[in-house]
Design a binder for these strands. Structure first.
Lengths: 232, 232
DNA sequence: CGCTGTCTTGATGTGAGTCAAATCTCGTGG
DNA sequence: CCACGAGATTTGACTCACATCAAGACAGCG
């Protein structure tokens, strides 16, 4: 069960600078008189399902969230991965139903904004409107990048691109928490569990990569990188 | 050479109802005092290249335009196909460089709006701002759909989905102009020319499809459709 | 009418999917 | 604290869809 923790203190939010309220002054924030709730979701918990009626939008304070689409044939495709500062559920601004299923991959802290409130903020503030436009653009770019991976690259290359990016973004002295199962990596990259497993196992044997309790580290980044610079 | 035809008569534009000015009244349109040019591009002509400095945005009055990305390894991926009513080059609103190369696939008539003008219109009119947000959302959806095709489906299915959609949208009594070469179909669907050619040739032999001077027709849509309803 | 580029077709190779089973991990309850 | 069991991961053997390489066939156009 997701837990509603508290009314958010947006004014002092640690991620405000990257949020949709980033352009706001102290004053603006104080005028922002709508309820925002901080909530905690456990790994595996679902924010909403594809085709549910839209109801609220979310900002991630910490944690990783996947947006998935399930197909009639039983397969799933992860469409986007979201982390701190990212927003989701904003299709509710223009559509009556969610476009994806949103699931927490690890413990996640998010702020929830009910849509009617969001809409009124949007109307009132060009800042927010603009910020949201930016987020859409960003999402599109991200999706296009993944599209290109799937359309033009082989299994090794897709996985290498992903792992390298992931380690760059969330790496602490080389080690990066990897909250995705092999299955999920497969669903993201358009592969099968077996293929993902085989490749990662191979890299670990090679010494390209280490893995320890859900975290990975690229031992010799150059090797894997060499795999990539032939491409892009 | 693209030909600048004339200053556009936006007020009486045949596609105004689907344009970003769709919410505008007669009055609004008359207040809209910025230069818009109608231009004609021939098949193969390039609107702009990826990484060019952004300069103008376009609305399609007629014709088909592809947005492509070229990779270091020589491959290309078509990221989106655009037709009447679609807009492109709008990343210029938030970025200094174009994200794709835009190419006309057949004779195309477009309206060109210089970015500084567009920005001022945007600021002045929430209508436009909102319309653009909608377009962005639409582009994202379209890209996600393609992503799913590439991530989860086999060659036959990808091609079938595409052809069926294409014929539904642009079909006149069954016949639909198909301004894409096999090569371009391949670049859109993450396949090779040979695979595309083989599959389409097979369908033509089977009687699933006919082809005549650059146009196609699904003879018995049910057969091809049956291929698909197992999926989605 | 020949040339260039597109499309088709065949022969062959291989990357990755499929099926199946062994092994590892980790949370749970005894 | 350990044993158990469910799920995740790895590995192997096999298959097959699609890429690759290599020619022809077929436009459309100067």
């Amino acid at each position: 069960m997701p837990k509603k923790e508290a009314v958010s203190d947006c004014l002092n939010c640690p991620i405000r600078s990257v949020s949709i309220f980033s352009g706001f002054s102290q004053q603006d924030m104080q005028n922002l008189d709508i309820p925002v709730f901080t909530m905690r979701f456990e790994a595996g918990e679902v924010f909403y399902q594809e085709n549910d009626s839209t109801f609220a939008a979310y900002t991630i304070k910490s944690g990783v969230v996947k947006l998935v689409k399930e197909l009639k044939n039983g397969k799933s495709q992860i469409v986007r991965l979201l982390t701190t500062g990212d927003i989701f559920g904003f299709e509710g601004l223009m559509d009556t139903h969610y476009h994806h299923t949103a699931v927490a991959l690890n413990e996640a802290h998010v702020c929830r904004l009910k849509l009617p409130d969001l809409i009124s903020v949007c109307r009132a503030s060009p800042h927010v409107h603009e910020a949201i436009l930016h987020r859409w653009a960003q999402a599109l770019k991200q999706t296009e990048d993944l599209l290109i991976e799937l359309g033009t690259k082989k299994a090794h290359e897709r996985l290498a691109t992903f792992v390298i990016n992931w380690c760059q973004h969330s790496g602490i002295n080389g080690w990066a928490q990897l909250p995705l199962t092999r299955q999920e990596l497969a669903e993201l990259l358009g592969l099968t569990v077996e293929t993902v497993s085989r490749i990662m196992a191979e890299w670990k044997r090679n010494g390209f990569m280490e893995e320890k309790q859900g975290a990975i580290r690229l031992s010799d980044e150059t090797d894997l990188t060499r795999l990539l610079d032939k491409m892009t």
